[in-house]
């Protein structure tokens, strides 16, 4: 098991490094200086600014320094637009918010989606099954940017039950709509995957054996069917994580929750390179690490995988 983890780490680390180098070079290729303003900056001032941010040194040296700072001190450097703040400040401010509703969205998607899928498979071809299939088909066409406005129209404008934006330190009524908007389409996918894999498992020989020896249905499902049936779901968790973390950008913008997505889009619009880079690298590394965890979990659960 340890050698398997090390082997996967040997892939993950270069991936993250490649991502850092790629985004660094991309930012270098970008036309225009981040200090350019409409009035124009005097050359002396520009030279001073560039010296301050280290932009006057050769490319390789700067890249080396940047990577060194990121890897050893987790330091993404100063923001070019928010003069008095570093990228780390922005991340420290926004990340807890993103993490809060991201975590709940993930939990809702997995728990609700999984339960729906299992119920649909166990009560195959009953109204429960049709309801679950109906929900998962319908939610396919409701990605987060469709869900968010619909939710606000219904729950904020018509019913007036929940606030349509803001965060207020994460009070529960401000968390609900973002979580629903973010998790719906993934919940639907998880329900669909769980249902079909559970149906397949319930038809397997070993389930028939378990039932033939007189085990109660509940025990058959939880002890025997659940584990093998969850394997495809686990392999979907990686893409779901990527999708949700991407979706968080939209949630932040639409609900003004103040997570890192809001900083990301603002800096994309104002060309604040160091912030875009920092967030891209942070998210990329998180994704690579999450995929690593998923792979390890998969190998741990699936007895067929030899490592």
């Amino acid at each position: 098991m340890l050698s398997f983890i090390i082997k996967r780490l040997a892939v993950a680390v270069p991936t993250i490094l490649a991502l850092i180098v790629f985004s660094f070079l991309l930012m270098e290729a970008a036309p225009g200086s981040p200090f350019a303003t409409e009035r124009g900056v005097p050359p002396e001032v520009l030279a001073n600014l560039e010296a301050k941010y280290g932009l006057d040194r050769p490319l390789i040296e700067r890249m080396g320094i940047y990577i060194w700072n990121v890897v050893t001190q987790f330091d993404f450097g100063p923001s070019f637009k928010f003069k008095d703040r570093t990228v780390n400040d922005l991340i420290a401010q926004g990340f807890p918010v993103t993490l809060t509703y991201g975590f709940w969205s993930f939990v809702v998607a997995v728990v609700v989606g999984g339960t729906l899928g299992i119920l649909a498979a166990v009560y195959h071809n009953t109204w429960l099954d049709y309801l679950a299939v109906g929900i998962s088909v319908g939610a396919q066409v409701l990605p987060n940017f469709v869900m968010a406005p619909i939710l606000v129209v219904v729950f904020t404008l018509w019913l007036g039950w929940l606030p349509g934006g803001g965060w207020r330190g994460g009070q529960w009524e401000y968390v609900i709509l973002p979580v629903i908007a973010l998790s719906t389409s993934y919940m639907a996918s998880i329900a669909r995957i769980t249902r079909s894999s559970m149906l397949e498992t319930l038809n397997a020989q070993f389930i028939r054996t378990a039932r033939a020896k007189g085990l109660p249905m509940r025990r058959v499902i939880f002890r025997h069917a659940l584990k093998p049936a969850m394997l495809p779901v686990i392999s979907y968790l990686g893409p779901a994580f990527v999708g949700m973390i991407t979706g968080s950008v939209l949630i932040d913008v639409f609900f003004s929750t103040g997570g890192i997505g809001q900083f990301f889009v603002n800096s994309a619009l104002s060309r604040d390179y160091s912030v875009i880079m920092g967030i891209t690298i942070l998210i990329g590394s998180l994704t690579v690490l999450f995929n690593l965890v998923v792979d390890v979990a998969y190998a741990w659960i699936d007895p067929k995988i030899r490592y």
Binding site: V11, S23, L26, M27, A29, A268, T287
Partner: peptide, 20 residues
């Protein structure tokens, strides 16, 4: 392919759109 899939592409694409 695996390597490219493990990167959250929306971010890289937005980066591309900003740069170019």
């Amino acid at each position: 392919v695996d390597l490219m899939m493990s990167i959250p592409y929306m971010f890289v694409l937005i980066l591309l759109l900003v740069v170019f």
